[in-house]
């Protein structure tokens, strides 16, 4: 995984609540056996008409947001299916930060495995950032993961919480499996113990 670096860029406002993973990447694009190339289908049914033409009102089709790196979203972003295709599609489009009041559990976890930082902030902070985001290219939002801050366009700084281990992995681009292999002896021991206590497993 690539190391996560600080982001400063345009943020797309998506105030709708409960944006689910079927919206982020509809089921017909789950048939791939690769992780790449899904960006073009991100938010497919909100973004394109049935004939494939763009729906001009959709935020990511507007000139200001075509290269957005950040999404400011309504609460409970990423609810629904466990499909990792959702963060794959976001990342492939170029999104590396999603900011919302709340995220669905599995989606939240999937983001960190793919170099995307999901940031939870208060309702008040989201209102400021949503307002910034609606100003398009004129408003830049900056994220510093090391410092755990989001800077609004006028310089207001919002601190955010992130799990220390997840932050460490994201900043250093660490592979989870490699890290777990370093502790694999504890798994060996666990299996030996379990074989005695619950041999039917």
């Amino acid at each position: 995984m690539e190391k996560f670096t600080n982001v400063s860029g345009v943020a797309a406002p998506m105030p709708l609540v409960n944006i689910d993973t079927d919206m982020i990447i509809p089921k017909q694009f789950l048939k791939t056996i690769k992780r790449s190339g899904l960006g073009v289908n991100l938010f497919d049914e909100m973004r394109y008409n049935q004939d494939g033409s763009e729906i001009s009102e959709f935020v990511l089709n507007q000139a200001a947001y075509r290269n957005a790196e950040i999404i400011i979203a309504g609460e409970n972003f990423g609810c629904g299916s466990s499909r990792e295709h959702a963060p794959w599609a976001l990342k492939d489009f170029g999104i590396s930060v999603v900011i919302s009041e709340s995220f669905a559990d599995i989606f939240y976890s999937n983001c960190f495995k793919n170099g995307i930082l999901p940031i939870k902030l208060s309702k008040e902070a989201i209102e400021v950032l949503m307002d910034d985001a609606s100003k398009g290219e004129n408003a830049r939002i900056s994220i510093d993961l090391e410092e755990q801050t989001v800077s609004a366009t006028d310089g207001t700084i919002f601190k955010f919480e992130v799990d220390a281990f997840k932050k460490h992995c994201l900043l250093n681009g660490l592979d989870d499996i490699g890290l777990t292999y370093q502790k694999i002896e504890s798994v060996d021991q666990f299996e030996k113990k379990q074989a005695k206590i619950t041999p039917w497993l």
């Binding site: 990792e84 999937n110 495995k113 989870d176 798994v187």
Partner: peptide, 11 residues
């Protein structure tokens, strides 16, 4: 997610 599927398969 799929990354975790891989993690469980491996570990």
């Amino acid at each position: 997610g799929t990354s975790e599927v891989e993690h469980v398969l491996a570990t």
